[in-house]
């Protein structure tokens, strides 16, 4: 971590306590507690169906939890959802850009929705930061999936959020662009104290970007700590080994739910 203060010692930007979500007979999220501090880069990991996306959608206010509390920058969901979302940016690699909008129009629309009265400068800055100024006039449906992801990340950072939530952000990026995105995100977190919460199935990417990983399996947090500590706890060489172990139904070598520092 490049900052002077340990992330855990900083004020939490996001806190979730005892989150539970059940769909019919399936308990997708089963008592998840999660705190992310300012400037911290955290990955929420786990096999398909582990409860990652449901957790993200609950903290974004799109899904109502059956139980538990969510607080973002001191704002409680769902009551203060609108005020809380002013401090949050979100992008997902799987989301298309809306049809019939040019890239600049799309970014300016969302800039205004996030409260920017004059979004044009922030849009230009974002396009330059990710080196895609040449796409400003392109229609959303003309972009490659990687380009769409970059535009989505620019959208998510227009309002200089205190919490940036990215669902599979680099899934469709080539290694060179992925590296630039990673560098841009690290800079954003270090310089502006933005907390980053990211999901990914690319464990190498996670090891490079995130200083803390939270593994979920069957809706529960099964490990929480630095990538190295979590891998060691599961007796694996790296996060990919942990991921495959959990995907096969494995458990940790030690009691669950303890922070690994």
């Amino acid at each position: 971590m490049s900052g002077a203060t340990e992330p855990r010692l900083r004020a939490p930007v996001f806190e979730a306590r005892g989150l539970v979500k059940e769909y019919k007979r399936v308990r997708a999220v089963d008592g998840i507690d999660l705190t992310v501090a300012a400037g911290e880069r955290v990955a929420l990991l786990g096999p398909n169906g582990a409860g990652k996306t449901t957790t993200l959608l609950m903290l974004l206010g799109v899904i109502t939890p059956d139980a538990g509390e969510i607080e973002i920058v001191g704002r409680h969901l769902p009551k203060e959802r609108s005020a809380a979302m002013e401090q949050v940016g979100f992008a997902a690699g799987y989301l298309p850009l809306p049809e019939r909008l040019r890239v600049r129009e799309f970014l300016e629309l969302f800039g205004r929705l996030y409260g920017l009265r004059h979004p044009a400068p922030a849009v230009e800055q974002g396009l330059e930061r990710f080196a895609i100024t040449h796409l400003a006039s392109a229609m959303g449906n003309e972009l490659s999936s990687g380009q769409r992801t970059l535009v989505g990340i620019i959208k998510a950072t227009l309002n200089r959020p205190r919490l940036l939530v990215l669902d599979e952000p680099t899934a469709s990026l080539d290694p060179n662009v992925a590296r630039r995105v990673r560098a841009g995100l690290e800079r954003l977190c270090a310089e502006e104290g933005t907390a980053l919460l990211v999901t990914s199935h690319n464990m190498v990417e996670v090891e490079r970007l995130c200083e803390r990983v939270v593994f979920v399996s069957a809706g529960k947090v099964v490990a929480d700590g630095t990538p190295e500590a979590v891998a060691a706890r599961f007796g694996r060489d790296d996060l990919e080994g942990v991921f495959l172990h959990l995907a096969d139904g494995g458990v940790a070598h030690e009691p669950d739910q303890e922070q690994v520092s």
Binding site: L60, V62, M85, V88, A92, R100, F110, L113, G115, K155
Partner: peptide
């Protein structure tokens, strides 16, 4: 239109009421 263009999630995570 928002459902046709999969824009609903994008809108729902903004401060828009």
């Amino acid at each position: 239109e928002e459902t046709w263009s999969s824009n609903l999630l994008n809108l729902m995570v903004t401060p828009l009421s």
